[in-house]
Amino acid sequence: MHGTALSGWLLVAVCTATGAYCLLRLRSDCARARSSAGGEAVMGFGMAAMAVPAAFAEPPSWLLAGYAGVFAAAALRAGWLARARENGGGHHLHHVIGSLAMVYMALAMSAPGGHTAHEGHPGAAGGVPLVTGALLVYYVGYVLTTGARLLPAAVTPRGGGTLAWRARPELTLACRLSMGIAMLAMLLAL
């Protein structure tokens, strides 16, 4: 991705931490939480891998094609799960959009000039402006709505007991918010 090395490493750290928490959520007792946690873990770790600054390790084109393949498969899985509305279908639609956005970014990065814009070709590295713009609008809306849902932080566990780390709804929302912000940063750096 373009941008400073510091912002790239911060994205790597945030996305890795989010992916790790999502792996922890896979142990939840709730099938719906486990269903979305797997897709979010793949997204978190995939975003971390793609956010590694190009100055540190410029990925070969075959690796970018691999990213595109993994996220295309993730989009198909999320689309399959989205058809079942009773199992969190709406959130799985978000996973479809996110996975397809990752495919788009991997393909844009693997295109000639995908890592650095050449002089005289300022738009060579940005993908298709209309697609990038649509994804930016979607993720701005997603970040704002997720952040608004997180604001009433007075989430109390049912029955007055304490919740395990893997079942904290406010942490799940915070992870989703941080991945949405990270996706915005990656799209802006494209």
Rank of each mutant, 00 (worst) to 15 (best):
H2V: 05
G3P: 01
G3K: 11
T4D: 10
L6E: 08
G8K: 01
W9T: 01
W9V: 00
L10M: 14
L10W: 11
A13E: 02
A13L: 15
V14Q: 00
V14L: 05
C15K: 07
C15M: 12
T16F: 11
T16Q: 07
A17K: 00
A17M: 12
G19H: 08
A20T: 14
A20E: 05
Y21G: 06
Y21H: 12
Y21W: 10
L23D: 00
R25N: 09
R25C: 13
R25H: 03
L26E: 03
D29A: 15
C30F: 10
R34M: 00
S35L: 15
G38M: 07
E40G: 15
M43R: 14
G46V: 10
G46D: 10
A48Q: 06
M50Y: 12
A54C: 05
A54G: 09
F56R: 14
F56Q: 10
E58C: 08
P60W: 05
P60N: 03
L64G: 06
G66T: 11
G69N: 09
V70M: 13
L76Y: 13
L76G: 12
A78T: 07
W80M: 07
W80S: 10
W80F: 12
A82L: 08
R83E: 05
A84P: 01
E86H: 15
N87A: 14
G89P: 08
H92W: 11
V96E: 03
I97C: 07
I97S: 03
M102C: 11
V103R: 09
V103S: 08
A108T: 13
A108I: 02
M109C: 10
A111N: 08
G113K: 13
G113F: 01
G113P: 09
G114L: 03
G114Y: 03
E119H: 13
H121V: 12
G127L: 05
V131C: 03
V131L: 10
G133N: 03
G133R: 04
L135A: 04
L136C: 08
V137R: 11
Y138C: 03
V140E: 01
G141E: 00
L144F: 07
L144A: 14
T146A: 07
G147T: 00
R149D: 06
L150D: 01
L151D: 01
V155P: 01
V155N: 09
T156K: 13
G159I: 02
G159N: 05
G160S: 06
T162S: 13
T162G: 11
R166G: 00
P169H: 06
L171D: 00
T172K: 10
R176V: 13
R176W: 08
L177V: 02
M179K: 10
G180P: 09
M186Q: 14
M186F: 02
L187I: 07
A189N: 15
